[in-house]
């Protein structure tokens, strides 16, 4: 894994680039709700204007129209901020897209508090929970630009609804395009370890990697798993980690209710009960501020993950 912390790319940027890259496929139609400059679907629009449709500031109509277009044999990418795509239009996503199992991919950018200055009204902290609770929906939360590019390709190849949870903030590139292979539904073992497992998703993966470094310095061997597909989740990899390390910390930029922590806990509770500590948003709304400052305010830090790892280890059954 070619980790180069000097290069930072937002996953939304990689999403727009991937749409433009794979857009030759005439089945692809991209919709946006007046946010194409921010969601980066503009990159597709410039190359394939005839298959880009601006639906205006009307997300409910965009989602049901996406279903109608998909019913005519198209692969539709419908984009907006996560708060509008996954939360505001959630019932349209449910009834028009998921109930019908139509081929619509939702490119939901600006997820989580790392949106920054726009503040709580624009920071989705509950979208993953809502999307995971809808039958037929696949939920993917990529960690970096390389994973995002391949996730877009996987979404094109998969026949059915997909929710892509993407970020506004530029994040380190963790993977090398040459040796990284995205497999939907499979976790990525990023570091081996035997004392505790850190399971992270989205931009928390690079922060979790830092936490593992910190733990290593303290003589703790931490395993690191990147869960890009939050649903359907890689139960096997989670249960192996529970069995082999006996303690888990989850890390997500999302409410701890209904997100990765809840999903991992439900898997371990049923298959291999071990202590699970959850680093995430503690049932609060976000707020305005610089992203880095907010991540500290909401304890979405390497220090917090490392601290919770030590706590989880203490709780292990002797």
């Amino acid at each position: 894994m070619g980790e180069d912390k000097n290069i930072k790319i937002a996953t939304r940027e990689a999403y727009g680039a991937a749409l433009a890259e794979f857009g030759e496929d005439k089945r692809i139609v991209v919709l946006d709700a007046d946010l194409s400059k921010s969601t980066k679907t503009e990159m597709f629009k410039k190359k394939f204007p005839e298959r880009f449709i601006n639906m205006g500031i009307a997300e409910a109509n965009m989602m049901s129209a996406a279903a109608g277009i998909a019913s005519c044999g198209k692969i539709v990418f419908a984009s907006s901020f996560a708060i509008f795509a996954g939360v505001r239009a959630c019932e349209q996503v449910r009834n028009s897209i998921c109930y019908t199992k139509l081929n619509v991919k939702i490119g939901a950018t600006h997820a989580g508090i790392s949106v920054g200055e726009d503040g709580a009204s624009h920071q989705a902290v509950e979208d993953m929970a809502i999307m995971c609770a809808i039958p037929n929906m696949t939920v993917i939360s990529p960690a970096d630009s390389v994973e995002t590019r391949q996730a877009v390709l996987a979404a094109i190849q998969y026949d059915g609804p997909v929710y892509l949870r993407l970020g506004r903030l530029a994040v380190p590139v963790l993977f090398d395009e040459k040796d990284y292979h995205f497999e939907p539904g499979k976790g990525v073992l990023m570091r081996k370890g035997s004392d505790v497992t850190v399971i992270a998703t989205g931009l928390m993966v690079h922060i979790a990697a830092e936490a593992c470094d910190m733990l290593k310095k303290e003589g703790i061997s931490a395993r690191l798993i990147n869960i890009h597909t939050v649903k359907p989740v890689d139960k096997g990899m989670i249960l192996d980690a529970a069995r082999e390390t006996g303690a888990i910390v989850t890390a997500e930029e999302h409410n701890i209710y209904g997100g990765l922590g809840s999903i991992v806990s439900s898997v371990t509770a049923a298959g291999m009960p071990v202590p699970v500590k959850m680093v995430g948003i503690q049932d609060k709304f976000g707020k305005s501020g610089k992203p880095d400052r907010l991540m500290k305010m909401y304890s979405l830090t390497a220090e917090k993950i490392a601290e919770q790892a030590v706590e989880a280890i203490k709780m292990k059954r002797k």
Binding site: V29, I53, A60, N61, M63, S64, A65, A66, A67, G68, I69, A70, S71, C72, G73, K74, E91, Q92, N95, S96, Y99, T100
Partner: peptide, 20 residues
């Protein structure tokens, strides 16, 4: 041609079919 029942969504889907 389209699942409906939740009011308002069908006409949007019809718009989508016409766009396609």
């Amino acid at each position: 041609d389209m699942s409906t029942g939740s009011l308002g969504q069908g006409i949007s889907a019809a718009v989508g079919m016409a766009l396609a």
